[in-house]
């Protein structure tokens, strides 16, 4: 459950202020499927990064599962990112020297999970994504779709409640884009809160709730009946 109250994010470019987010108020229930659309530079990524605790607002309050997270220390925020939040990026951001399995293992390694538990979960995740036979391949030996599946496995292996995806299909062809969307939606049906930023209207339409942003503000917030 997410609540944003009067969130502002202002960037200083030279001596000019850029209002990336203006007075955002938003409530998202656990398990929702939400898409954020809007023209380039409208603040979609900024909003997503803020929700993912990668960025801090200049004003306003952000409550995650009832807890005010805007005032938490770096260490506490990191812990929340580790345990409650998963990211999927347009450019996958896999560590190139690590194999698919090792990339998936990474968040569990950072969390200090026991090795056998890690291996168990990696195997399960590879299976869920249908890339078991690619476990020992490095990213440069994988196709874009396979890379994004590894990234999704990595984002969800800690079983977070919130999955944030910034243009998850932006770098994929149509077919593998559709596969990735299917995987994300399956995860959402199993209870995860899914927030997708996209330029693709077709993908945007699939969500139960759409936000449309222009110039740092949410213009429309419509939900499918």
């Amino acid at each position: 459950m997410i609540t944003l109250e009067n969130i502002q994010r202002i960037f200083l470019v030279g001596d000019q202020k850029v209002h990336a987010l203006r007075d955002i108020n938003l409530h998202i229930n656990a398990g929702e499927y939400l898409s954020i659309m809007g023209p380039s530079g409208s603040g979609k990524s900024t909003l997503l990064n803020l929700l993912g605790l990668l960025d801090r607002p200049d004003a306003g309050r952000y409550r995650l599962d009832g807890q005010d997270v805007t005032t938490l220390s770096d260490k506490q925020q990191a812990r929340l990112r580790r345990e409650r939040i998963g990211f999927v990026f347009q450019f996958f951001h896999l560590v190139p020297r690590l194999t698919a399995a090792q990339n998936i293992e990474l968040p569990m390694m950072l969390a200090g999970l026991p090795v056998d538990e890690r291996q168990l979960r990696v195997r399960q995740a590879l299976e869920d994504m249908g890339i078991t036979d690619r476990a020992d391949h490095r990213p440069d030996q994988l196709s874009g779709g396979q890379r994004q599946r590894v990234a999704i496995a990595r984002a969800t292996v800690m079983q977070p409640g919130l999955l944030l995806a910034d243009e998850p299909t932006g770098n994929l062809d149509r077919a593998s884009g559709k596969d990735v969307v299917d995987i994300l939606e399956t995860l959402q049906r199993h209870g995860i809160t899914l927030i997708v930023v996209t330029h693709d209207p077709e993908l945007g339409e699939r969500a139960q709730r759409h936000l449309h942003m222009v110039d740092g503000a949410i213009i429309t917030d419509t939900a499918k009946p």
Partner: peptide, 16 residues
Amino acid sequence: TTEIGLLKALGAPEQQ
């Protein structure tokens, strides 16, 4: 840089 950003996104605090 990207790897470090990623580690942070995956939940590594600064100290780590």
